[in-house]
């Protein structure tokens, strides 16, 4: 009974992760400029990766593999905003004009 419920939760979490990753890929193709595409890439890095890693944690039982999976999740969680911010900052510095409104004074 417990095994069955763990299997079901794991499948639900795999489905959620795959949904977020596919949506992020579609957004990466469809959105208009590089600043908007960073949002889609951030979605792949946070929700997609976390849900798929959660599914694998539930599949693996409790061992050293679980701790390593948690470490990969935390590592992706910490490095995703850094690459996003560095890309956005460099594109802005090199003069890529963002599409859309600009409110108030910007730097």
């Amino acid at each position: 009974m417990l095994d069955l419920s763990i299997q079901i939760i794991s499948i639900i979490s795999f489905v959620g992760g795959v949904f977020f990753i596919l949506t992020g890929s579609i957004g990466l193709i469809r959105l208009p400029d590089v600043f908007s595409r960073i949002h889609a890439a951030g979605m792949i890095d946070t929700a997609g990766a976390s849900f798929i890693i959660l599914g694998m944690i539930l599949q693996s039982g409790f061992s050293l593999i679980t701790a390593k999976l948690v470490f990969i999740g935390i590592f992706i969680f910490f490095t995703s905003p850094i690459t996003g911010h560095v890309t956005a900052n460099l594109a802005r510095k090199k003069g890529v004009i963002p599409i859309g409104k600009t409110k108030g004074k910007t730097l």
Partner: peptide, 22 residues
């Protein structure tokens, strides 16, 4: 989690209107 769901909705419904502010 909440903003992931909102972003997925925005991407799938093509309703983005980007803006820049301080």
């Amino acid at each position: 989690f909440i903003s992931n769901i909102t972003t997925a909705k925005v991407i799938l419904s093509k309703s983005e209107e980007p803006e820049l502010f301080s």
